[in-house]
Structures are given as structure tokens and as C-alpha cells.
Amino acid sequence: MTNSTEIELTKPPRSQWKDVWDQFKTHKGALLGGVVFLAIIITVFLGPYVWTIDASTIDIRARNQGSSLAHPFGTDQLGRDTLARMIAGGQTSISVGLAAMVLALFLGSMIGVMAGFFKKLDGPLMRLTDLFLALPLLPLLLVMMLLFREPLNAAFGPETGIFILIVTAIGVTSWMPTARIVRGDVLALKEREFILAARSIGTKNSKIISRHILPNVLSPILVSATLGIANAIITESALSFLGLGFPPDFPTWGRLLYDATDYLQQFPERVFWPGIAISLTVLSVNYLGDGLRDALDPRVRGR
């Protein structure tokens, strides 16, 4: 009896994040998804140091080659190395995905917390959210690309300009689900005792939000972050595929797929590399999100 309590006592205290990690580990798909996503990020961002061929070097004599030792993924119609272009394209696609996700999360959490915390803002902000949800997003994104491409090109140069435009456009049109989830959670949290306690000792609203509310809504935000990355990568690729994304000489996965469809009859394998890259990234992120949702939900974690 005393022995067992002693063992209990000497056990190191478990932190919440260790519990989360233990639950996360039991979801094999999520673990694999996380590993694959990390591997993709590492390949894409450290790849240029290993595979040193420049993505934009044109070697017209080596055009339209199949896989070989010099060009494992072959070359395109201008003799550019497909592997190097895939790495460069992945950098853009994943950067766009991450940046757009951060923007959408920032907007969504801010609006969600505002709407949930301040009663006066709830009505107007939620009507705004409903309004955004009723907007036809893909057509509007296409229209935004059409309209703001040239002014931003002129201001920041073609690549940075389009990057800013795509990230802003995707971020501004995908914050609504996060805002709704966060608002719901904040509404419930606001009535809890620890908020009352904080208020009773005179904590300011801004401190209550940053110290007590935000850490407690972190888990829905994290889950919608993963979904946000997947959504942003697909949207960026779709825009590039419709010919309204990055300029033609600037590779992204969507753009590579779009260019490859012109040579569908002769070189069908060219379509697969970017297509598989997009699908694999999105699939791994979705599995990651699935596992995170289970791991961060204390009701599931207990079982």
C-alpha cells in the first residue's frame, strides 16, 4: 500500500502537452501525415542546397528528356530540370499556404475573440461573417487576381506583388470558419469562474484575452490552422491552374501542372510530379489535422 503510493508520488508530473503527444501518437495516420509534411517542407526548403541545378536555366539541347541520372524527373520543353523546378515550385506553394493560413488565422481569431468577448460587437461581426460566407469565393478570387495584379506588379515587382496578392486574397476569403469556432468557444469560456476571478481582481480586458482566453482557444485554432494550409495550397494551385496565378516563368506546383497539360499527349508523366506533390501535401496535412483534433480534445484524450 505505502509502496504503491510512493511510486505514485515519485512519478514525474505529466504536462498537458505530453498527454496531447501521447494521444497524437496513437493515431498512426496523423503521425505519418506529420512526418510526410515535415519531410516535404525540409526537401523543398533545403533541397536547393543538395540539388544545385538552377530552376530557370534553359538548356534547349536537353529539352523534353525522360528521367536520367542528370535529370531524375526529366526536363521540360525548354530543357529546364523538372526536379529543380519542383523544388522551387514547392517553396512558393508551401510559403503561400503557410502565409495565407497565418493571415486567415489571425483575422479569424481576432474577429472570433472580439465577437465572443464583447457583446456589442457580436451581432455586427457575425453578420459580417455570414456575409463573407455567402460570397462566391472562387469567382471573387479570380476577379481579385484580375483586378489587382497590375497595380501590385508595378509596386512590388511581378513575383512579390503576386505573392502578396495571392496570400491576401486567400487569407481574406478563408477566415470565416475559424472565426465561428473561436467565437463559440469564447462565449462558453467567458462564463467560466476563472474569468470571473480574473475580472474581480481588476484584470483589464486586454490581459484577460491574452492570458486567459487565447491559451484556452488554442486547440481549435491549431486544428483550423492545418485545414487552412490545405485549403490555401489547393486554392493557390487552382488559381495557377486557371492561368491567373503566378507569372509563367515563376514555377509553383499549380503552374507546373497547368504547363504540363499542354503536353499531355506526348509526356503524360510530367503532369504527375506536381499533381502528386500537391495531393500528398494536402493529404498529409489533412491527416495531421485529423490527429490533432483528436489529440487536443480532452474528451477523446481520456479514452
Binding site: I234, L257, V271, G275, I278, S279, V282, L283, N286, D290
Partner: peptide, 13 residues
Amino acid sequence: MIGYSVPPFFSGV
């Protein structure tokens, strides 16, 4: 999951 993740511009092609 695959149906979610594979965008139509790839599954179509």
C-alpha cells in the same frame, strides 16, 4: 481523405 485532398485539376488530368 483522398477525395478531399486530390484537387479536381489533378484528378481530372
